[in-house]
Structure formats: C-alpha cells, structure tokens
Design a protein around this nucleic acid. Structure first.
Lengths: 356, 356
DNA sequence: CTGAAAGCGCTTACAG
DNA sequence: CTGAAAGCGCTTACAG
C-alpha cells in the first residue's frame, strides 16, 4: 500500500517543475503553457493515477470546496430529499457536503457550526433557521449562508423557499369549493418563517372570504404528530362546529387525524384535513392525505446552486421562491350538509356578515 | 471581517514559540510543559477565540478526522436514522461525515469515492455493499471500511449488521403460530447480503418445519414497492393458495399489499404479510404492518464507532450483529379456515409429508 | 513559456 | 521545559 502520487511525482515523471505541472493540470492556467508540455504532464498524471490532494490545495487557496449542511432532524421525511438535492447540486460543482444534524437543539447546532468552521467550510446551507436566530444572525456577517425552506425575519438572508402563501391559498380555495365555511388552522410554530407565513396567508384568505371570524388559528409548538394531536384536541374543544382544518404541515395533519378519530369524528366525512409538504408515503395512509406539495429536492438543489454561485461571485443575497401544488386525495370532502349553511352564531361566537 | 487568529497569533499573545503554543493546546503534549506556560497559552487562545485550522492540521498529520459515508438512496426511509446514528457517533469522537448519495448507481458511486479520496477521508462507512462489489473489494486494501447492514460475501469486511436470520425466524414462527402452512417469501435482491441471508433463513425455517415444498421463494430485483408488487403478482399466479408472505423488506411488503388488493384479496383476512425493518410511519398505514424491527440508528452509530476504533488502532476486521424484534401489528392474522388444513396437493404441486 | 521561491497553518523530531 | 527548523502538497506572484 504505497502512498498516492504527489504533484512532485508527476512533475518528475514529465521532466518539468512542479509549478509547471500544476499549471498544466489546471484548466484555467493550462493555456499559458506549451501544448506539448501540457500533454506530457497530463499523460504523466494519468500514468501515475495522480489525483490532487484537496487538503493541500485548500490550505493554499483558502477554499475547501466544502459546505456545511445544517439539518434540524433528518428523520423528518422532508429532509432526505432536500439533502439529496443538495448533494447532487454540489457534486455538479465538485463541492462536498459536511452534514450536521442539530437534533433541533441550539447547543448541538452551535457545536456543529464550530466544527464546520474549524474545517473551514466555504459556506453554509441551513434548514434550521428560526425567525429570530442569534447564532445565524451573527454568522451571516462571517460566511456565505443560504437558508432552505425556513428563513430569518431579519436581516435579509439568501434563501430558497416554497411559496407558502400560494400553497395555503390553494388549500383554502379547495375547501371553500367543497362548501366549508368553518375552517381552522393548526399553525406551525410561529418562531419559524414557514409557520408564520402560512398562518398569515391563512388569516388573509379567511378574512378576504369574509369568514375570518369563523376561522380560528391555533399554534402548534412543534412540527410533530404529537403537537398536532394536542392542538387538534384544543381546537375541537373550542370550536366543535369546524368542518375543515388546514395543518401547518403533514406531520401536524397526521396528528390531527388521530385526534379526530379519538374524538369520534371521521375524516373526511365530518372534518376535512389538508396537510403541507406532501411527504413520502402519505398516499398509503388512511385516509390518503390531501396536501400541498413542495419539492424538497428542488429546494435543496437550488439552494446549493445559489450558494455555489455566491461563492463564485459574491453579490447581494437573493431569494428564490419555488411553486407549490395542491394534491387532492381523500382527506377532504364536501362539508357536511348540517353545517354547510351555518345556523345563527352561538353566543360567545362573534357574528359576521359574509361579503359576496 | 478579519481573518481568524492563527496559532502564531496565540503564541505571540502568550509570549512563546508556536511550537510551545501547539504543545500547550494539545492534551497529549500538554504535560511536557510548565503548568504556568500552559495556562498562559490557554488563556491567550481563549482571549483571541482561537480555533485550530483543521485543514492545516490534516495536511501535517495526514489525518483529516473525516469519514466518507456512502448511502445508496437517502430517500429510502431506513437510511435517515442510520445517518443520524453515524453523525452522532462521529461527533462524539470529533470526526465529520462527508455524505454521498450514490443513487444506486455504480458510476456515481465511483465518482463519489474518487471525490472522497481526493479529500483524504480517513475511512469509509458504506451502506451500498453488494455481495460482489468490485469497487469495494478493491478499496478494502487501501482504506479502512465498515459496512452497514449490507456486507460483502468476500473478503471479510468489518461490518455492523442486523440479525437477519433471527428476524426471519421470528416472523416465520409467528405465522406458524397463526396456523399458516403455505408461506411465501418475496426475497430481496440476491446480490445483496440482506436479500440472500433472509432468503436462506426463510428456506431453512420452512424445511425445518417440514413445509419446505409449500413455501416458495421469489426474488425481487429491487427493494421497492414496485418490485414487491410485481413479485407478488407472480407469486399469486403461481401459488394461489398461499395464506401468508414474508417480504424482504417493508417496501416490498407495501408493494405486495397493493398487489394483493388489486387481485381482490384482503390483508390480513386472506393473506397475512410481514415486512422487515420497521420503517417509519408503518403504523399509520392500512393495515398497520407487522414487521421485524431493526434499529437503523444503532446500526449507523455502532458502525461509526467501529470505524473510529479501527482508525485509532488497526486490527482484525470485526463483525457486530445487532438484535431484531418482531413487531406484531394488523397485517397478520390466523390462517383462513379453508386452508388451515391443506387439502391434497394439486397436480403439479409436489406433495410432502410433514414431520411431527 | 517555464522555473525558483515563498508560504498557507499547523506538528514534531531534533537540539539545547 | 522550550525553541528553531523542517515539511505536509499544493498554488501563485515574481523573474527571466
């Protein structure tokens, strides 16, 4: 098991100086050289099976061609496709991903960032952003960062996100078309941009439709089935006449369906449920979940491309918004007849006049 | 945005030579130094916020403290927990994971390996092994490798795997206890150790029980729902009287259930189905799948620990086998009465005497 | 068009 | 107990 050949070996083999060998092997400097010299070096390199030492190159050029990837919890099924997209895009630009799973823990995230900085990653791809995120906000001045899916409230950060507002609007219209008028929103955590943006879009849809007073929003403290179930329990208790629910994401929707079932309500006969993300295997569940599809692969792919682009030529931080698509399955159905035309508002419920 | 402090900065600040600063900051050499000197250096480092440059250190020591991770398809739900386990264990030993998704493609895998080698990873964690795998078999002589879940047929490779045989045995016994006598196996690809080992265990169980002739094995060409459905279609056609099926993994089981449904058979009333792996969200599907649980987190965690251990002190390649656990849900039920006592074998079906 | 030299930031025999 | 020096494998101004 001999050591791999170095540039010096290649140079000796080709009968040139290492500097010349270096130039011959670098496409950017290749044309400074005599074509014959280049050929000699290239074939020497091939003969020896030479591969440049990325570590040495990195030390010299202060560019590691590696980027850190911060994922809150790889076990959440939206992240694997995102990571695939990232890795694929980075590969296209011969960069490498250093993966860190922060386990939704600020301490672990800080440790991970420190480790990535010691390794001198050229930039960071972060799917862990909260709207206020001291660590990220401070890092922003130090290293190129692109947010994925979630972003900071301020300062502006380069990011690739889904069109949350459009997705919610589509979901809301779908439920309206089915005759629903009492629609709840199990919002994602408000300290995340996705949770907040979707909740805002929901409220806007509800008030635009003139049914704002019948459309309560309740915040889940996490994007999990458990949090979704707990929130659904409260929502049922406070608003027993709801006929539909838009969840902040699919996990919350799944929890909501469980809570509904426990309370003796059927989905979709009694209550329709819409999710968000279209995570894998949703089609196999009962009922198959109607949801808003987001291509997490594309989110990851585009974010990685954006970061590489920023590394190449630093510029103003950009923001890319990717489209969503409503996927109608079987967790949504026409509003139950009894509530399709709401009776007089119960006491304690504000009455409201519908426009149009 | 000033450059991060170097060891030279720390040394200057502490009034010592860089060599001394280096020794003071390294736990292994710290005790060669005057305690007062160590303190001066340490506080200088803290004051400056010094963090060692991992790239420079790697170039000098020829150890990058990074390992490459080869995953065939992160989108397969067994891999995210495995990667989490890997990342977690590596973090404990201050190593970093360079993640590559090979997309089940030999070409991409070769590219990924080349990229990892240029980056001089200290070792490889591979979840992509096939029983015969030229690239891996050749690499084995070059770099420390630990296989995860899947392994080579030869030469021996360090690996952490699940106890496939025990898992299959438990599944088989469970079906026998439910009165099944005609049990099929939708085997995983035979070019993977998991596919082969499980198929072998199945055949052994069947012949030990004296029902080998009634227990057909059919090979799926991939670990996917589609392949599982296709194989199930063939199995139904060839062996219409089967009452139970053990699938090579959960994805195959899911495909099998779809195929069963399309053929007008109910699961579990007509045909019981057992999966393998206990991937996430199985409990939400209809019917909730009975399966053999493997802790992929542990597989990843232990494999990473084993690799780090091998890096520390090279030794004979080890093999760690992790236990499995049968998880009984609702896709298995008592064998239908009509077939619980098989009638005389149909023509073309070999007859067989049962022992015991 | 090519060579000689310096240096990226560390660690570690070798002296003293 | 500490310093001076060399060197890991590259790239890139600087000469010629």
């Amino acid at each position: 098991v001999s050591k791999p050949p170095t540039l010096a070996d290649v140079a000796r083999h080709a009968g040139v100086h290492t500097a010349t060998a270096s130039r011959a092997l670098n496409p950017a400097t290749r044309d400074l050289l005599n074509a014959k010299t280049v050929r000699r070096v290239v074939s020497a390199a091939a003969a020896l099976g030479y591969a440049p030492n990325a570590i040495a190159r990195a030390l010299r050029t202060a560019r590691t061609r590696s980027v850190g990837v911060l994922i809150p919890d790889l076990t959440n099924p939206i992240f694997p496709p995102m990571v695939r997209g990232i890795v694929e895009a980075l590969r296209d630009d011969s960069h490498t991903a250093l993966l860190a799973d922060t386990d939704n823990d600020d301490g672990k995230e800080a440790d991970a960032v420190a480790a990535l900085q010691e390794r001198h990653v050229d930039g960071l791809l972060v799917a862990t952003a909260r709207r206020r995120h001291p660590l990220l906000q401070q890092l922003l001045a130090t290293v190129p960062i692109v947010g994925i899916s979630r972003t900071l409230e301020s300062p502006p950060m380069a990011a690739v996100v889904a069109d949350d507002a459009a997705g919610i609007t589509d979901a809301f219209s779908h439920l309206r078309d089915l005759g629903h008028r009492r629609i709840g929103h199990l919002a994602g955590p408000h300290d995340m941009s996705t949770g907040m943006d979707r909740a805002r879009a929901f409220s806007y849809c509800a008030s635009s439709a003139g049914i704002g007073d019948w459309c309560p929003v309740i915040e889940c403290d996490r994007y999990t089935r458990e949090a979704g179930a707990r929130a659904m329990d409260r929502l049922i208790a406070d608003h027993p006449r709801l006929t539909a629910v838009i969840a902040g994401n699919d996990l919350i929707a799944l929890g909501a369906i469980e809570a509904l079932r426990r309370s003796g309500r059927r989905c979709p006969e009694d209550v329709s449920v819409v999710g968000f993300n279209d995570m894998p295997y949703l089609d196999l569940m009962t009922p198959p979940l109607t949801t808003v599809r987001v291509s997490h692969y594309d989110l990851g792919f585009e974010a990685a491309r954006m970061l590489v682009e920023m590394l190449r030529r630093p510029g103003a931080s950009r923001r890319l918004v990717l489209p969503t698509q409503l996927i109608v399955r079987s967790s949504t159905a026409a509003a139950p007849a009894s509530t399709a035309r709401p009776k007089a508002a119960r006491s304690g419920q504000p009455s409201s006049s519908r426009r149009r």
